[in-house]
C-alpha cells in the first residue's frame, strides 16, 4: 500500500513537471490557430523563451522575473510571426518553419557569445521558480511529490481556465473565434481582424515563451540546445487532438503529462527498455485519436491569409 502511494506520488510529480511547458505552449497555440493563423513556430518560440529565462535568471537571480522575460521574448517572436503572416500575408507554415530555425539558432548563438558554450551554466536553486509549500514536506514523501512542485505547475491550470473563460465568455474570445472562421464577416461588422490576430499571435508567442522558460527554470535548471526539441510540436499535436479548444488542449497535454509519469515510474522498474517506454505518449495519442477523437476540424479560415480590401 505504501509502495502504491509512493509510486502514485512519483507519477503525479512527473506529470506535474512534464505538463506545464506543453500546456502553456498549447494554450498559446489555441489562440493563434483559432484566430486563423497557423503557428508551427511554437517550437522556436519556446526555445527563445527557454534561453531568455535562463539568461535572465543567471543575471538577476530572480526566477519569476526570468519566467516573465521568457514569455516576453516569446511574444517578440510572436510579433515577428504576426507581421509576416498577418500584415504581409506570408504562407503561415513557411513563416513558422523559419521561426523554428531562427529561434533555436539565436538561442544557442546567445549562449555562445555570453558563455562561450552551447549551454548556459546551471541555474542556482534560488534563481529558479519558487515551489509551493517549500520545505513543508519531507523530500520524497507523497505530499512532497504532489504538493511541493513549482508554483507555476499549478498555476498553469488556472491559466488554462482563464483561457477557456476568455474564449467562450468574453467579447474578445467571441471575436477571435469568429476571425478564425470568417474574417470577411468580422470585418464587415467592424471587427478589426488584423488587430485580433496580432493580439492572438503575440499571445501565442508569450505563452509558448512561458512554457519554454518553465523548462529551464524548473525542469532542467539550465539551457541546453536539446531542452525543448520537439515539445513545441507535441503542444501543437495536443491542440489538434483537443480540436483547437483550450479545454481539449488541456486533455491532450494531460495525456502526455501522465504518460510521462508512467514513463518515469517504469524507468525506475527497469524491466522494459526506456526507449520502448518513451514511445508510450505518442502511441497512446495515436490510439486515443483513432478510438475517440477522429476528425479534427480546423477553424474554417485557419492558414488563409486575410487581405483587407480598400
Amino acid at each position: 500500500m505504501d509502495m502504491l502511494i509512493t509510486n502514485l506520488g512519483i507519477l503525479i510529480n512527473a506529470a506535474l513537471i512534464a505538463t506545464p511547458p506543453l500546456l502553456f505552449a498549447a494554450l498559446g497555440s489555441c489562440f493563434s490557430e483559432r484566430s486563423g493563423v497557423v503557428n508551427i513556430g511554437i517550437e522556436g518560440m519556446m526555445t527563445i523563451g527557454a534561453v531568455t529565462g535562463a539568461i535572465t535568471a543567471l543575471t538577476t537571480g530572480n526566477g519569476l522575473l526570468a519566467f516573465l522575460c521568457g514569455g516576453l521574448a516569446g511574444a517578440l517572436f510572436g510579433l515577428i510571426h504576426a507581421i509576416v503572416c498577418v500584415s504581409l500575408h506570408a504562407d503561415q507554415t513557411i513563416a513558422g518553419t523559419a521561426i523554428n530555425f531562427i529561434g533555436p539558432g539565436i538561442a544557442v548563438f546567445l549562449c555562445r557569445i555570453l558563455y562561450n558554450s552551447s549551454d548556459t551554466p546551471a541555474i542556482d536553486a534560488s534563481a529558479k521558480l519558487p515551489k509551493l509549500f517549500d520545505g513543508m514536506f519531507k523530500s520524497g514523501s507523497f505530499a512532497y511529490n504532489v504538493f511541493s512542485v513549482y508554483i507555476m505547475a499549478y498555476l498553469v491550470f488556472v491559466v488554462a481556465w482563464i483561457c477557456w473563460f476568455v474564449f467562450y465568455k468574453t467579447r474578445f474570445g467571441t471575436h477571435l473565434r469568429a476571425c478564425g472562421e470568417h474574417p470577411e464577416a468580422c470585418e464587415s461588422l467592424g471587427i478589426d481582424v488584423y488587430k485580433v490576430r496580432y493580439i492572438c499571435v503575440i499571445l501565442s508567442g508569450f505563452l509558448a515563451g512561458l512554457g519554454g522558460a518553465f523548462v529551464t527554470l524548473a525542469t532542467v535548471s539550465q539551457f541546453r540546445p536539446t531542452v525543448i526539441v520537439g515539445q513545441g510540436f507535441i503542444a501543437i499535436a495536443a491542440v489538434i487532438f483537443g480540436k483547437f479548444s483550450p479545454e481539449g488542449a488541456l486533455k491532450g497535454c494531460l495525456i502526455f503529462g501522465i504518460c510521462n509519469g508512467v514513463k518515469s515510474l517504469a524507468t525506475q522498474s527497469n524491466i522494459i527498455s526506456v526507449n520502448i517506454i518513451s514511445m508510450i505518449p505518442y502511441v497512446v495519442t495515436i490510439i486515443a485519436l483513432i478510438a475517440f477523437v477522429g476528425r479534427a476540424n480546423a477553424p474554417a479560415a485557419n492558414g488563409k491569409p486575410y487581405i483587407k480590401s480598400r
Binding site: 509576416v84 506570408a90 513557411i94 523559419a98 521561426i99 530555425f101 531562427i102 533555436p104 539565436i106 544557442v108
Partner: peptide, 12 residues
C-alpha cells in the same frame, strides 16, 4: 548557429 539564423531568415 549563425547558419540556422541565416537559413531561417532566407525562408522568411
Amino acid at each position: 548557429e549563425i547558419i540556422n539564423i541565416i537559413m531561417g531568415c532566407v525562408v522568411i
